[in-house]
Nucleic acid binder design. Structure first.
Lengths: 200, 200
DNA sequence: TACGGTCAATGACTTCGGGTCAATAAAAAA
DNA sequence: TTTTTTATTGACCCGAAGTCATTGACCGTA
């Protein structure tokens, strides 16, 4: 990697970190692009060499922790499916809570923004979550925990709705309930119920 | 009602109807306030005598059908709770589908918009749904369908998450699944499971 | 080390649509 | 009739997102 590329990487990182801080404290709409670039010590134009739109930086920020979760799940191979799902739900909500209400709200709004089009039109905003949950279910089928006729796509879809529903409600409520506690409660009450017909 | 008040009412209605049409066809961001007022045959300023922000008209539009639902539920007094809930879920999703993906998406974005503050800070964006669902559950307790120690608030909250989760996912998927079919499936699979511990 | 090409960085400038407001006219009240 | 109220108007303002021609530091090559 050349010096130039290194500097470019640093600049981008600086922008992401600065934006993260500012958004977290003050909210997305009360911070404009120049606030970010000034604090990061670069010019406005530089922002746009790294991001097409102001909104893009939020998407950049928010998906970062999810690669960790994938690794953590790999270490849980011998645990049963309920534990794995419970873990995923908890980690998802931890990320939601950690990123804070401002960023989480903006992320959701970005994902719903018609101007924010995915690169290829078949991809979904929840692809990442979808893949992870599906992997958990598929492994459970392979490991004979779940029957072979389990409707994996359907169940995955249900779980996605649960996760995004909780997240949306949390944002709508302006953070008035505890997302983690809430998730725990859901997992205890519902996961087993949903899976029961398919458990071997 | 004086002539002036009548005209004002007509003007506002005209704006709402025109905006509804335009948003439904073309989407919220591709229509600006002048498009609406021009087509409605009034001036731009008039828009702002009736709505504080461009976004407000979407909130105005979207909640209209819900007073009907309340009436319809009143006529179902003798039905059991599962039927009532299934009915509410279906009607909710019918409204979602009918309003169309553009408006539904924008409604969700508005509700998540930090600039869009509720009149009093204790009120929630889902108050309307919350009240209706709670009423259904409360009546079921009064009618001895549900045990008296049923955690009504918790269950209501769960149902809200389900509804908003489905809606959010539908918008995110850009309308790629059938919300009604999806709801039906959910109700058949889950409603009974969720309520089972509390049924008498 | 000289030199042409590349690319990150700059910041003045453009664009654009949301929102304002003083003036107007028509209706209601006095 | 006079005064007050209020819906309407549209030119104007504003502010922030996003653009782009220009610069100069860095890169590979000879």
């Amino acid at each position: 990697m050349t010096k130039r590329q290194e500097n470019a990487k640093k600049t981008k990182l600086k922008l992401v970190k600065t934006a993260l801080e500012l958004f977290k404290d003050t909210g997305f709409y009360d911070i404009n692009v120049e606030d970010i670039t000034k604090k990061a010590g670069v010019s406005k134009g530089t922002f746009y060499t790294y991001f097409k739109r102001k909104e893009d930086i939020v998407l950049e920020i928010s998906r970062a922790p999810f690669s960790e979760i994938a690794e953590e799940l790999d270490l849980m191979k011998d645990k049963d499916i309920i534990e794995k799902l419970t873990y995923y739900f908890r980690r998802f909500m931890e990320c939601v809570e950690f990123s804070g209400i401002h960023i989480c709200r903006q992320w959701t709004r970005d994902v719903l923004d018609p101007n924010n089009v995915p690169e290829n039109k078949d991809s979904q905003k929840w692809d990442y979550d979808f893949e992870m949950l599906r992997t958990i279910l598929e492994n459970a089928v392979l490991g004979k925990e779940l029957k072979s006729d389990t409707p994996i796509e359907l169940l995955t879809h249900i779980f996605i709705c649960e996760l995004y529903g909780m997240m949306t409600c949390w944002c709508m409520s302006d953070g008035k309930f505890e997302p983690l506690q809430w998730t725990e409660q859901f997992c205890n009450m519902q996961l087993e119920n949903i899976l029961k017909p398919y458990l071997t």
